[in-house]
Nucleic acid binder design. Structure first.
Lengths: 342, 342
DNA sequence: TTGAAAGCGTTACCAC
DNA sequence: GTGGTAACGCTTTCAA
């Protein structure tokens, strides 16, 4: 039989309401009684039932993290891992916990929405990698359900959004490759309907055109296999690129594999750079050049903002935030001597 | 104002009890009425409140995944990523969702226990990487709370446990290295209090002693840095090993970094192998030899078993399961020609 | 300062 | 078949 406030009350010789007051640190309760109640609570090893509390307070203290990604392709994706672990760690110390869900396809996406929101399972949502125009966002706004978008554009200024400056990120990476003397820089981009893709491509193009170079964009799926295939194809062409900027480190790793297969030397014959600055960059021979997008800081901001919104302090902070990013130069794109990665 | 069964009932001109019956597919409800109710539900975009349902049914349909790991060291850990994504994907199609938590230290561990269990937040728990003798397990059993242990020993036969055959895993990896002619094989092990560590070390020792070779075990923390440091030290010694078997792919990557730094050639001068067969193995030049522990299958089994226990079908299936494992041989341990990883 | 009691939105039992 | 109603365990208002 489960221990309830009722039981505690009986054992302590008080009313159940008093037990509740003790638990919520209500000032108006006789010190002696409080003492007594706490003792019984301790001895009975009691914790309040979160379901009952949720129902009553209309707050579950659960935050939902929804990822949109094809089934299976999550494995080994460093971005995903970082996102989840960062979020969980952020939540330590708050009184919220994490509920993770994946929306594999459009159908499932609607289902996730239903499960998490309409059923009131979570108090708020972190949305990641959503498409530029996302049906979910509209519905969430209509329902005025608390949510923060992570890593997407500011087209709608009423949204709570934290994003990296992806245009800047694309630009600095490209500039670096140009500075290293690469003359034909291709960009291995993700799906063109994603805002991330568009922004980084914009930055890439800006940088190129500032020095009168022609762009060469290849769209591909995320993931190492897709990147490898695409890279193999483009590197096999006559007049192929001598540098490739990939949409993330994983794709960049695919490029490296392709280069190795074709016996193209990196960085001498081919410069490679990616985004995310994941631990993976240090695993590559000589290290891989990558733009650090400060995912940790972004997640921290997103969570803190989400809790603000959930708790009604919406006006207390900024609605939107752009995270700076910084380039980490390593061996994969430096034609001179290769930096030690240790 | 939130849409409730009450409202649906009023709009459909029936009692709230009937709405509930429609929702639970109760047979005894007039088809015409059911039709009508469903229509109103659809049109009002109604979903039942999961908190109320949880309270009533005493079931939250939430499963907790608790990881014990130092704060920060999760980043980029492929095991962690695979675990979470595999779990979430397993849960698709069941009516359970995932609640993730990390227990950083012993104190926090108790706190997680309280948060998740005593508050009845989750219906059951998947425990990972628990220590051989784990206080939590005792408490869980006392409370007869549903849980499944993933990747740990069978010392207690009343536990629900799925594990890989870590002794076997250690043995086959070691045998492979011996077969390749490495004469001094060291094992870079994890913390010695973990069952995983002990089992793999056992397998390693069995294999060595079957051919009269001497063991050389180095205990280290998980993570790439720790492994790199430990490997640097041991490789710098006179008469150092010419092969290292690391406790996971990440640690093996640390060994590779150390070797590179010391200009020791892999696999000619040093053979390296790891465990997990993570995507990381394909990123390494020539590929990395690794034991595939079938984490996907383990997770699937664990979830399916956990749901069985939660739903009272405890007798319906096996209590314990050992997953087979298989060695994937790649360039890092093959002295002849290096296999193409494409 | 304390207790009684009214919900929160469901489910499930019991009459009709 | 259907509707009324008592829980589920908690918070919070209202009286005392």
């Amino acid at each position: 039989m489960r221990v309830t406030q009722q039981l505690i009350a009986k054992l302590a010789g008080v009313s159940q309401a008093t037990v509740s007051r003790v638990l919520s640190n209500d000032a108006r309760v006789e010190p002696a009684i409080r003492e007594k109640v706490l003792e019984v609570i301790q001895q009975q090893n009691y914790s309040p039932d979160v379901r009952a509390r949720s129902l009553r307070q209309k707050r579950s203290h659960l935050i939902g993290l929804v990822l949109r990604r094809e089934s299976g392709s999550l494995h080994g994706d460093p971005f995903f891992a970082q996102l989840v672990s960062e979020t969980v760690e952020c939540l330590i110390g708050t009184n919220y916990q994490l509920c993770v869900d994946i929306a594999t396809d459009h159908e499932r996406q609607k289902h996730v929405y239903d499960e998490l929101l309409r059923t009131r399972r979570v108090d708020g949502l972190i949305l990641v990698e959503s498409e530029a125009y996302d049906e979910r966002i509209i519905r969430l706004q209509e329902d005025s359900f608390p949510f923060v978008v992570l890593g997407n554009a500011f087209e709608n200024s009423t949204l709570n959004v934290v994003d990296n400056d992806n245009v800047l990120a694309g630009r600095i990476a490209t500039q670096h490759l140009m500075d290293q003397g690469y003359s034909h820089i291709a960009m291995l981009a993700g799906p063109p309907n994603l805002t991330v893709t568009r922004d980084r491509v914009s930055g890439y193009m800006e940088a190129l055109s500032s020095r009168g170079m022609k762009p060469h964009v290849i769209y591909s799926d995320f993931g190492i296999e897709g990147a490898r295939t695409a890279a193999l194809e483009v590197l096999n062409q006559r007049n192929g690129p001598n540098a490739i900027l990939a949409m993330d480190d994983f794709m960049a790793a695919g490029v490296l594999q392709a280069a190795r297969h074709l016996e193209i030397r990196v960085p001498e014959q081919l410069g490679v750079a990616g985004f995310n600055n994941s631990p993976l960059c240090l695993l590559i021979e000589g290290g891989m050049t990558s733009v650090d997008l400060r995912i940790d800081t972004m997640v921290r901001w997103a969570i803190q903002r989400l809790i603000q919104v959930i708790e009604g302090d919406e006006e207390a902070g900024d609605r939107q935030k752009v995270m700076p990013c910084e380039l980490h130069v390593r061996g994969s794109s430096v034609r001179g001597k290769v930096a030690s990665i240790l």
